[in-house]
Computed example of a mutant assay.
Amino acid sequence: MSKIDLARAFGFSDTHVDQLYDAGAPFVERGGPGRPWKIESAAFIPWYIKRKQDAATNDFGRVKTREMTARAKQRELKVADLEGQLIPTVEVVAYLADANSTIRARFAAIESQVPGLSDEQREQLRSAIADSIEGLSGDKPEDWKSAPTDGEDDEMDFG
């Protein structure tokens, strides 16, 4: 049997047959320019079947390992939940929102704690505060409730 015959018999492309031989498929004689490959199908067929079985077994083993790992993680999370070691997402979100609000308020208070600022200095301070808050929380000044500009009793309202 030649390489072309093998490809036709199994519905393989020539490239796939070459890949199989690179992977160790048995053959009688390697072909070359003007010389066809000599292949013994009686040796190739069992080799190919074993290769497919090994691939399927390896795939099944990987799937089974992933499944066992996932189940073990689920059990660990359930135990941690029962022992009170997990914090519900709602509580974490509420805590972070409160912390973010506190940070905003403290940043807003900075301006009122620095007396004697010129209008230009006050604007630079506001800009620096706005940049800091935006960097911390992703909030943008246009999302804030208001930003006073009259110079009197200037406390920024960050929401």
Score class of each variant (00 low, 15 high):
S2L: 06
S2I: 13
S2G: 03
K3A: 12
K3D: 14
I4R: 05
I4L: 07
R8V: 15
A9K: 15
F10D: 06
G11D: 12
G11Y: 08
F12Q: 05
F12K: 02
D14H: 11
H16M: 09
H16S: 09
Q19E: 14
A23K: 12
A23N: 13
P26Q: 12
P26E: 13
E29G: 12
G32P: 13
P33N: 09
I39C: 12
I39F: 07
E40P: 05
S41C: 00
A42R: 11
P46D: 11
W47K: 13
I49T: 02
K50C: 04
R51Q: 13
K52Y: 02
K52W: 03
Q53V: 09
A56W: 02
N58R: 10
N58W: 02
N58H: 02
N58A: 09
R62G: 14
V63I: 13
V63W: 07
K64Y: 06
T65V: 14
T65M: 05
R66D: 13
R66Y: 06
E67P: 01
A70L: 01
R71G: 05
A72M: 09
K73S: 11
Q74M: 13
Q74I: 10
E76G: 01
K78M: 00
K78C: 02
K78N: 07
V79L: 11
G84T: 05
Q85G: 04
P88H: 07
T89R: 05
V92H: 07
A94C: 02
A94E: 14
Y95N: 10
L96E: 07
A97N: 03
A97W: 01
A99K: 10
T102N: 12
T102H: 11
I103T: 07
I103C: 00
A105R: 15
R106L: 13
F107S: 06
F107P: 06
E111D: 04
S112I: 01
S112V: 08
Q113A: 15
L117N: 02
D119W: 06
D119E: 08
D119N: 10
E123S: 03
E123M: 04
Q124G: 01
R126M: 08
S127D: 08
D131N: 07
S132K: 10
I133L: 15
E134F: 10
G135P: 05
D139H: 03
E142P: 03
K145L: 04
T149L: 04
T149V: 03
D150G: 09
G151P: 13
E155K: 15
E155Y: 14
M156G: 11
M156N: 12
M156L: 14
F158P: 11
